[in-house]
Structures are given as structure tokens and as C-alpha cells.
């Protein structure tokens, strides 16, 4: 499956700025970030801030939940949903 521009932007941010200590060049949009224990609370806050600035949106606190951060694809879906509101 190809990547949407939103997915590409989120993936690049995660690989370069959040998982700088790991080699995740092969991270796919559908790969689970949670089952691999990649996201801690600090990384989640950074990712939320990035998405808000990059896409000009405000992600409500009650949407910062595991299902919405399962993968790059899930985060992109959340961004699109919030944008559409």
C-alpha cells in the first residue's frame, strides 16, 4: 500500500525525531508502534505537538488514546478526522 502525504510527514518525523536511537528505516505505515513498545509518554506528547503544528489542528486530549497511536496510519487517520471537523 502506498503512503499518503500525511503518513509520509508523520513517518519522517517519528523516524528522525522520536526514534533517533533506533534503526527504523523500514518502518511501514501499518507497523504497530505500541506492541513494539516504541512510544513512551514523552514521545506521544512530542508527536501530538508535531501534528498540531504541522497540520494546523488541535488534537483533543480525549483522542490521545492507544487506538489512535497504534501505527503511522492510525495517527494519520486521527489527523484527517480532526482536520475534517
Amino acid at each position: 500500500m502506498s503512503q499518503s502525504p500525511t503518513e509520509t510527514a508523520i513517518r519522517t518525523f517519528l523516524v528522525e525525531d522520536v526514534f533517533y536511537d533506533r534503526d527504523l528505516k523500514d518502518l511501514k505505515p501499518e507497523d504497530s508502534l505500541l506492541s513494539r513498545g516504541l512510544l513512551d509518554s514523552m514521545s506521544i506528547l512530542k508527536t501530538v505537538t508535531f501534528c498540531e503544528e504541522q497540520f494546523g489542528i488541535t488534537i483533543p486530549d480525549e483522542d490521545v488514546l492507544p487506538d489512535n497511536f497504534e501505527s503511522v496510519r492510525a495517527i494519520a487517520k486521527l489527523v484527517e478526522r480532526v482536520k475534517g471537523k
Binding site: 505500541l34 506492541s35 513498545g37 512510544l39 513512551d40 509518554s41 514521545s43 506521544i44 486530549d61 480525549e62 490521545v64 488514546l65 492507544p66 497511536f69
Partner: peptide
């Protein structure tokens, strides 16, 4: 649960 530990809301 390790899956939700990083999400204060969860």
C-alpha cells in the same frame, strides 16, 4: 497494561 501505560487518558 503496557499498551496503555503511556496514555494518561487511557
Amino acid at each position: 497494561s503496557p499498551r496503555i501505560a503511556a496514555f494518561p487518558a487511557a
